[in-house]
């Protein structure tokens, strides 16, 4: 699946320009199954990018792990989901030195989650590269109950925590790595617009 091209939006909506090798320097790479293809493309463009890279594969298939292993990164780690990967990711960031490059590839949820943790660890945004691959499901934060609903594909959608019907805003917090969902029928309870699929 190729790199996703998103339609123009507001200033807070992130864009993911794609991965470009910074050479054989220390690196941390985080990808899900779809994002792994972006890492493979990256290594194809410059094999040396893997020499000093830690690769974290989130929820990837066994075959994906094998394909990434064949790129001979410095280390390859697998975790079933983002939460499980977080302690290792944080510890890699804590030990990292200036000049370490961060490559993120996969869903918006993964990129948002990893960006938020990396910037909290002191990595400036201009040291983070990202490429969107795979489904365009959004990580949505309910402004009312603060609960996060993963992989939202429709607008409006039902908050998986408080049950309110929320519309999908393009407003995005890089600190939290989430989009904002706001009650769609607050003024006129029950008056809910037709559900549509969100677009890239």
């Amino acid at each position: 699946m190729p790199k996703t091209v998103f339609s123009p939006s507001i200033d807070s909506r992130p864009t993911y320009p794609g991965l470009v090798s910074q050479g054989a320097v220390p690196g941390i790479m985080v990808a899900d199954d779809a994002g792994a293809a972006a890492l493979i493309d990256l290594a194809t463009s410059d094999a040396s990018v893997m020499d000093r890279a830690h690769v974290l594969l989130i929820g990837g298939a066994e075959t994906t792990a094998t394909r990434l292993g064949n790129l001979t990164p410095k280390a390859l780690h697998s975790a079933p989901d983002l939460e499980a990967a977080a302690p290792l990711f944080d510890s890699l960031l804590l030990d990292a030195r200036m000049g370490t490059q961060l490559y993120l590839a996969g869903s918006e949820g993964l990129i948002g989650f990893a960006t938020a943790r990396a910037t909290a660890a002191g990595l400036p945004l201009d040291a983070i590269q990202s490429e969107h691959r795979g489904p365009i499901g959004r990580r949505m934060k309910c402004v009312h109950c603060k609960g996060i609903t993963e992989d939202v594909l429709t607008d409006p959608f039902t908050c998986s925590h408080c049950g309110l019907t929320l519309f999908v805003r393009d407003h995005f917090s890089r600190r939290l790595g989430v989009f904002q969902g706001v009650c769609v029928d607050a003024e006129t309870p029950g008056d809910i617009p037709e559900t549509v699929e969100i677009r890239a």
Binding site: I10, D11, S12, R13, K141, V143, D170, H171, F172, S173, R174, R175, L176, Q180
Partner: peptide, 12 residues
């Protein structure tokens, strides 16, 4: 939600 945003993101 908006804490940590720059001026343009916050007003987006």
């Amino acid at each position: 939600f908006d804490v940590g945003m720059n001026f343009f993101e916050w007003h987006a």
